[in-house]
Each structure stands twice: as C-alpha cells, then as structure tokens.
Write a protein that binds this DNA or RNA. Structure first.
Lengths: 251, 251
DNA sequence: GTTGTCAAGTGGTATAGTCCACCTATCCGC
DNA sequence: GCGGATAGGTGGACTATACCACTTGACAAC
C-alpha cells in the first residue's frame, strides 16, 4: 500500500480555512453574518457551488449555521471540555491549562483478531501501540491507549511522543488527515490500578471513551481507548447528524 | 412565528430514504457496493449532483462510506446501545428489549433565563417540560428531562407521552424534523434521589448526557438532560466530523 | 510468471446557470 | 399609525457539463 500525500488542497477547503482563521482571530464574532454564498463566490472568483461547499464545511465542523432567507452566521463557540476527537493538547490549551504527557508504552505489536478486524489488518500485519498518561498542570487527568496500523506510520515507534501531538505527526510526517470519528462512552467505577494512576479512590466514577478514527474515505487509522476522571471532565460531543426515524416508528 | 410544514421532500432525500430502506430490509448488506453516482443518476433520471447528494446524506448518517476510485458501500451496522440522538423506543427495540415510559411531569412552564437563551426564547415565551422515566423490560434504566419551546408544539402538554415517541409526534403533528444534535456527557456518582429512582446504590456511576437538538436550519427545538445507569448502558456517539488541527499546532 | 501499461469506471472538484422558498425592509395605501 | 404588497437578498434544490485522481482489471511485453 502506498502512502498518499495530498499536496492538492481543494479551493473550498482553502476558503473554509480562511474563514475559520477569521473566526479564530476574533475578526468575526459569534452571531456575525458571514459573506453570502454569492458574495463569497464573486470575491474569490469561483462558482457559487464552490463557495457553498466552503460554508458547508464550516457547518459540518460546527463553526457556522445557516438560516434560509437570512444568511450564514458564525456559531457560538463551544466550551470543549474534552472533545475526544480533537487532540488532547489542543483541548487543554483552549482552557488555559498546560498539557503534558508521560509515555507508558510505545511498541510494535501483533494485534489480536478483534483489533485486526477493527483496523482492517491482515493476519500478520503489525500495529503500533501507544499508551500515554495525560496531565493538565501536572495533574494526571486522563489515560489514553492508541493502536494504529504500522504500515500507515512506519517509524512511529521511534518518535518522542511525550511532547508531540499524534494527530499533528500523522499529518506532517505521514500525510494522513483524519476526517471522521466514532465513539462509545461508558461510565464505570475506577478499578484499583486506575485509581492508583489517577491518585484517586477505587469506585469513583470514570468516563471510558472508545474511539475509532478514520480518513476521509473511511480507512481506519486509529483505535483508541481513553479513560478520564469523571469529576474533572465533561465529554463534549460535537454537532451530529440525526438519522430520520425508522419506518417502524411511523405507525 | 409561523409553523412550517414542509410538504416538499427533496429528491435527494427521497433517494436516500429509498436506499436506507433497502439496507434495512436486508436487500443490501454491509460491505455491498451501492449504485455508483452515475448509475443512480441515470436510474432516477436526475443529475449526478443530485444522486451524489443522496449518497452524501447516507454517509453523514453513518450508513455508507465512500472510497475514491472504487465506489460507495454499505457501512457496518452499529450496535447503538444508547445513541442519545435517536428515540429511546427505537434504541431499545433494536436490542430486542421492550421499551416503556412513565411520565413524571408534563406541563407548561416559564423557563428561567439560562434555558431561554439556549432555546432562543423571548422573556415571556412559555415552554413545555416533560420528564419521563424510561424502562426496558419494566426495569428503570434512564431518566429523561426535556424542555421545548411551547410555540413550536402547542398542545403537547395534553398528549399522552407514556406511549408515544416524542420525535415521531414532533414530526407527524407539528411538522418538525430534527436534523442536528449536540451533546455533553459526564460521569458522576448517583445522588440519593437518583439512586432511589433507579433502585440503585448511592455513589454508583451514572452517565449524564445534556443534549440540544436542532432543525435543519439550526433552530433550537429541544433541551434534554438524560441520566443513564452507568452499568447498563454504553453511549454510542455516531459518526462525527473531525475539525482540522488549529494553526497553533502546526508548529 | 512478473511487470508495466492502459482503459474503464469510480468518487472529487469545479463551472455556469435556473428556479424556488423564505426573510426582511421598504414603501404605499388606507 | 397600521397593515399589506412588493422587491431584493438569502440559502436550498436542482440541471448539464467538464476535468481530475484514484482503483481495478485486462492485456501486452518481457
């Protein structure tokens, strides 16, 4: 399998990023009206559909919302306590906390069957296993275990993952852009070893998030299990599409 | 504000629903290739972009995935333990459990400021408050508190909500189609009154999900707080778009 | 057999239009 | 002043067309 390096960035993505930056810089505030599709198209000398795609991207990311007949507007900023889908470092910094990590495990393994199925690996394909304790202002707040197909990120096992963002590394070194995520979350009491890790009491509520992360074309990239102290975090679930009710319910 | 009743259903939504049904019926299995955009366009006598939108809808709903150069495929079915975004009844039935509800509160209230802001209500706009205990096979498993703007659903306070699905009622009686959701989830120990409700021990882990639900054009429809027994549920978070890393992290 | 090339089919991006439903502000008539 | 029509702007839903990037399989060359 070849590594893909997308040097080509679609126009609509560039436009979306431009607007994102204007929002991040404070030039555009929540509630402000964004340029209309037609204005945007003319300003960038592109077709209206392309401008529309740019705005659509912002809507999917939760940074904007549309109102028919009125326009497209900057969305309220979300207090992303823990999104689980963004990088831990990013999450912490956005709250003014100083993030750090302690690498507990970083090695190449032969994953077992269940894991291979999830990551769509062949019988003898190796994987990289990374476990990190996450700290905010030097207090342990989360434990994260990540498994990735080795063929997607050869050499990852030799990186210093205490200071780097995994997502940034995937993007910059391996050209892998994560686009989709899917999680399951459960609440349960802390087991003894978990309690020890968090300097915490046994039985206190923990939040356990299991996440699969995919590329744009839905290739599995990452299987992650994160454990958070229940008393320190709220898990923020970003904007989601609601599926229509099934036919069964129409009666 | 007028109630809007969309009798018009876009072509691409109809096409997406058609395919959804073929998946639900078992005619199409996970991994099967869906008709290509061009085939679909020709078969329904629409432009390729319209066919593309239909497939896009399925992708957003998590029912399909695309692979560039190969095609669009039926996604693996998800074990939706608790999605929080689908109706409780639907969730339970899909696991072979018999759902039921006990209405604990159903009344028109004057919401306080914080709630008014979330639901974009004026100072004197009333709201409907619905609290239900949810049971699976007659065992209490979740507690759900929902607030909706009264003007969106006048008369809801007189409905029998013990047997009806709220989402189905909104759709069928009020013409409101929910399209987007946003949640926050936390884990915490059960308080005494919660423990009593669930026939449970104080301090045992609970999952508390706070959800806002919106229409397609992002009008707030529902503010909901759901409490689940941590030992009985996993909260399933459907497919989500991952925002690109912020510029700060590029360094 | 292995390797390389090529053509056909796929989704991804993009142009250039059209018509419609909806919202708002303005203006006109009362 | 009040209410209703209207015009202009917005996003939503299309059509028709084009080229590109990527995957696959068939086939030729070695």
């Amino acid at each position: 399998m070849m590594l893909k390096r997308h040097s080509f960035v679609p126009l609509y993505v560039q436009m979306a990023e431009g607007i994102s930056q204007r929002i991040a810089s404070g030039e555009l505030s929540p509630g402000d009206q964004l340029p209309s599709e037609r204005e945007l198209a003319e300003a960038h000398n592109v077709s209206r559909l392309t401008a529309r795609q740019a705005l659509e991207e912002l809507v999917l990311q939760g940074r904007a919302y549309r109102v028919r007949g009125r326009g497209t507007f900057v969305a309220e900023p979300k207090i992303r306590e823990v999104s689980g889908l963004r990088s831990f470092s990013d999450d912490m910094r956005s709250q003014g906390l100083v993030p750090s990590s302690r690498v507990l495990r970083l090695e190449v393994i032969q994953p077992e069957e269940a894991l291979r199925a999830r990551l769509k690996l062949g019988a003898h394909d190796p994987a990289v296993w990374l476990e990190r304790l996450r700290l905010a202002n030097n207090l342990p707040v989360a434990f994260e275990s990540v498994v990735l197909p080795h063929k997607l990120c050869p050499g990852l096992e030799n990186e210093d993952m205490a200071t780097q963002s995994l997502y940034a590394l995937l993007r910059d070194k391996y050209g892998i852009y994560l686009a989709w995520g899917e999680s399951e979350i459960e609440a349960r009491g802390a087991l003894p070893h978990e309690a020890a890790l968090f300097e915490f009491d046994v039985g206190q509520p923990l939040m356990v998030a299991t996440r699969m992360t995919f590329t744009e074309s839905f290739e599995p990239v990452e299987f992650a299990k994160s454990i958070y102290r229940g008393d320190r975090f709220t898990f923020y679930v970003g904007r989601q599409r609601i599926p229509p009710l099934t036919t069964d319910e129409r009666r």
